[in-house]
């Protein structure tokens, strides 16, 4: 559905996006993840025809983004970052204007707008001036204009930025509903969002793709050990020594706690083993106090930080 091939954009001497390549299958929701300033918006602006690429190409529904820009734009619904809208227009007037620009069928135009208003929860404010709406409603108007003309591809640039938690949940639900009928590219710097709505993730850092895979696979790939997080009451050195004797343990990391003789440990063990029971037994047998024990899964945050922190070491095991 979308094929991006070594897309590059430089502004003068600064290279904002460098050789970015990825594919999006039909019906997929792809998360474009990266810290602020990573090049997400520039990538998206090239895909939507707002900026021409310096090098490289992309095809959307088979059309070249540069040579067939108009055809590409007909297949895309785009929600730009910060949701620019015509604040003097009413919601209805604006959506009608968009429908005319997108050249939708005149006979069914009003029905389509009605349906979108309902879907986006905009019925109650349809006659209000956009400038007077709350941020959450504005975001929905932004989504609504993207949906007009029933485009095959939706490109949403940071659709939940600046909303309160309840509004974020609503917009995410809306996006999840849309996922059934559209191919979606969604950019975000919120990792949680990716794991909630996206099938696959492309991580961009400093304008380059540093990883792309399903969230599940990324986690698996970067998790080389099974980690257990433990808090124990007992002298640090002694506890550490006895933990090392447990079968299957590779490394024991120790972090002194705030209270005397209460220490935190992260125990790395071979992937396929669950050693929690063995650890508990060992601690009790040695006469220490076991305060907390839980398995520690590598979160998307950890992966993200690993991939995007300059000079970061891969998970250290020694």
């Amino acid at each position: 559905m979308i094929e991006v091939e070594s897309l590059t954009k430089s502004f003068g001497d600064t290279v904002a996006v460098k050789d970015v390549s990825f594919n999006v299958e039909s019906g997929e929701v792809l998360g474009l993840l990266g810290p602020n300033g990573a090049g997400k918006t520039t990538t998206i602006r090239m895909l939507t025809g707002y900026l021409p690429p310096t090098r490289g190409t992309a095809r959307i529904v088979g059309y070249d983004i540069f040579k067939d820009s108009l055809k590409v734009r007909r297949q895309i619904g785009y929600l730009p970052e910060n949701v620019p809208l015509y604040n003097n227009m009413s919601v209805n007037t604006f959506l009608n204007f968009v429908a005319r620009v997108k050249d939708t069928e005149v006979r069914t135009r009003n029905d389509q707008i009605d349906e979108i208003l309902l879907h986006c929860g905009l019925r109650e404010v349809q006659n209000k001036t956009i400038g007077k709406l709350s941020k959450g409603f504005k975001q929905r108007v932004g989504l609504a204009q993207a949906l007009i003309g029933n485009p095959m591809v939706l490109i949403l640039d940071e659709p939940t930025t600046g909303l309160d938690p309840r509004q974020i949940a609503q917009i995410r639900d809306l996006i999840k509903q849309l996922a059934s009928g559209h191919t979606i590219i969604l950019s975000t710097h919120i990792l949680h969002e990716v794991s909630m709505v996206c099938d696959r993730v492309v991580i961009i850092h400093n304008g380059e793709v540093v990883a792309q895979d399903s969230v599940e696979n990324l986690t698996k790939e970067l998790t080389k050990t099974q980690m257990t997080y433990i808090t124990i009451h007992g002298p640090l050195k002694l506890v550490k020594e006895s933990l090392k004797t447990v079968e299957g343990v590779l490394v024991v990391e120790s972090h002194p706690g705030d209270v005397e003789d209460v220490n935190n440990f992260i125990v790395h063990a071979q992937l396929e083993r669950d050693i929690r029971e063995l650890i508990a037994k060992c601690v009790v047998n040695s006469g220490f106090g076991l305060l907390e024990l839980k398995s520690h899964a590598l979160s998307l945050e950890d992966i993200f930080l690993q991939l995007t922190t300059k000079g970061a070491k891969p998970m250290n095991l020694n």
Partner: peptide, 14 residues
């Protein structure tokens, strides 16, 4: 100034 140019320039219109 308001950024709506980005909408306008990405609609299927020349």
């Amino acid at each position: 100034r308001s950024g709506t140019i980005e909408l306008l320039m990405t609609y299927p219109i020349q």
